[in-house]
């Protein structure tokens, strides 16, 4: 199948190095401590953060740091054919774990001992790159909940199809079976916290593909930063003196 046309356009009309339209909104769940909606093209994800709060299961309590928990689920209506079992299967357990580890690495857990932070992410529309979208949404929600973090974590995926590196794969490109690299990145300290890849790539090409994903992460970080700053300013001036 041809994923990049001779004119250099992808199936959805993007250039190979072009990202999908991103949109973020803070404050989607009224009862949560922090919440956010993050969209990448047709992928739409909602995240809610509760805590830091009292540990529900006392045996899990850690005396010098916070316990971070994460639950990933997909809404029944998120995919083309309705999902039978939206959570608890192998795939969502794995993604929950990935998101938890990524977020735990950047939360300053030692500042909130003997407490627990719950992150709930749900995919509302799935069109490839849900993993990245979930991490971005979780970052925003954690920032909204006022949880101290080492740095913003942002995530973006990239792939390699028709001997072209492609940024931010959508569902059709994702299911083509080619290599799919998901990168989680800390822009300020310039470090990678998450790297996942399906199938194989030669090392010299891999470098290019990963660099492309990192560029995508940086672009998302800039956007997220703007959204958070605007939100903070608005809260501040509304409150008044």
């Amino acid at each position: 199948m041809e994923f990049v046309s001779p004119e250099g356009l992808r199936l959805d009309g993007r250039r190979p190095m072009e990202m999908r339209q991103i949109r973020a909104e803070i404050g989607a769940v009224a009862k949560a401590d922090g919440s956010a909606v993050f969209e990448m093209g047709n992928t739409k994800v909602i995240a809610a953060v509760y805590g830091p709060r009292e540990v529900q299961n006392r045996t899990q309590q850690i005396n010098d740091q916070a316990l971070v928990r994460c639950e990933y689920s997909m809404a029944n209506f998120s995919t083309g054919d309705r999902m039978r079992k939206p959570k608890g299967d192998r795939r969502s357990t794995e993604i929950s774990l990935v998101i938890r580890q990524t977020m735990e690495a950047c939360i300053l857990t030692h500042l909130m001992p003997r407490s627990q932070i719950d992150i709930f992410v749900q995919v509302l529309q799935a069109d490839g790159g849900t993993r990245s979208a979930c991490i971005n949404a979780a970052t925003l929600a954690l920032a909204d909940a006022g949880i101290p973090m080492r740095d913003l974590v942002t995530s973006c995926s990239s792939g390699y199809l028709n001997s072209t590196p492609l940024l931010d794969l959508n569902y059709v490109e994702d299911s083509a079976g080619g290599p799919d690299v998901t990168v989680g990145f800390l822009p300020k300290v310039d470090k990678v916290t998450l790297l996942q890849m399906d199938s194989k790539l030669p090392i010299d090409i891999f470098e290019n593909v990963m660099q492309l994903a990192i560029e995508g992460c940086k672009a998302i970080a800039n956007y997220i930063r703007e959204i958070m700053l605007e939100n903070t300013k608005q809260l501040e001036y509304r409150r008044g003196i």
Partner: peptide, 9 residues
């Protein structure tokens, strides 16, 4: 007025 910061600023 530019005292607002976001994470990693």
């Amino acid at each position: 007025s530019n005292a607002s910061v976001s994470i990693s600023d």
